Computed example of a mutant assay.
Amino acid sequence: MCVLEPSAGVCLLPAYSKYRSHFHHIVLIDQHIRRGGFPSSKSIARELELSDRTIRRNIEFMRDALGAPIEYDPSRKGYCYTQPAWTLPGIQLTEGELLGLVLVQLAVSAYKGTPLESYLKSIVDKLVARLPEEISVDPRGLAESFRITLGPVAPINPEHWEMLARAIREKRSVRMTYYAVGRDKTADRDVDPYLLRCYRGDWYLVAHDHASGYVPIFSLARIRALKLLDEHFVVRDDFHPDEYLGGIFQTVETSERHKVRIQFFDIAARLIAERIWHPTQKLTHRKDGSVVLEMTVADLDEVAWWVLSWGSRARVLAPEALLSAVLGEAAAILESRDHG
């Protein structure tokens, strides 16, 4: 269902209303206060069929975010503008810009429960509050036509994210109790946080480890406790974020670099050719329809697990260590099946 605007030949989508409902409430509150009569939040709530709490929250938003000169007159028991000439700000958006705003709103819902949710939502709310009351949009659907879906993600402690972001800004070391899933052990570590990385919805910390001297990657989901230290640090001269991340295949960084060559067949070849799997990748298309993927990576184990996910449609050409890892894991799978 849509309301047709004959002059524009496009529709006002009901789906869009949820993105501008906040703005509508503010416009109506503005109209009630501007008429005079010192309306109270309860009287406005009755007329708009909203809760008193919603009206108060919107009035607070108008004051704080929009700079509205609204004051409550105790003697009149209602609100008024101390500067009657003040008007609500507005933004003119193109259809493409409006689509971008809708996609940002969808991204907020995709990050629900993460530390970024409140930040993104605040930005979107401020933008939406400044939109004009009537916006013509294409009838193809906007919000109904797009979805942003994250894969399975590991929950993190929002306070840890906040503390690490602060530590990075202030160049301060942290002490964390960290669970190493590979060794199945938990230990305290003092590290210098360099950067936070989001990979497929999961958050990781790149940090200089005081004990080892290396700069490994830590999963925020495995941080059991975190403390901000008074000690300040200087980022190592040999650390360059783009170079560092350029060697990572997925989430593991080592001081090593391995040039791998993997041949893919049938549907796997076509799927491999569709994507950029690594910044260093090179694809070679062979006459038999297969594709050879070459790339330089830091860790072979995670590449081995990835190769196994393609089953018989993937063949390791190099290096020998990667082939041994894949064959060893395949043999272990068969052995576990036989002993099952």
Rank of each mutant, 00 (worst) to 15 (best):
T186L: 06
A45C: 01
V292W: 04
P155V: 01
P69D: 00
L66P: 15
D266G: 11
V260Y: 01
I70W: 13
L308C: 11
G213C: 09
S290W: 13
P319M: 03
G100H: 05
C198M: 13
K112G: 09
D230W: 05
G9N: 13
E60N: 15
K227L: 07
G96E: 12
A269M: 05
L103C: 11
P319L: 07
L334M: 07
H160G: 01
R337Y: 12
R275W: 08
I217C: 11
G151I: 00
L48Y: 04
A180I: 02
A331I: 02
E256T: 07
I55S: 09
T87F: 00
D288V: 07
R34N: 03
K77P: 03
I59D: 11
G141I: 05
G78D: 05
A45P: 04
A110E: 06
N58L: 10
L327F: 03
I91H: 11
T87W: 01
A107F: 11
R315C: 03
S336K: 13
A110T: 11
D238V: 06
A180V: 06
R189M: 02
L308Y: 04
E243S: 09
F218Y: 15
S309W: 00
H232F: 00
A298W: 12
D242A: 06
A180Q: 09
L120Y: 10
G151W: 00
I267M: 13
L13P: 08
E144K: 09
R147D: 10
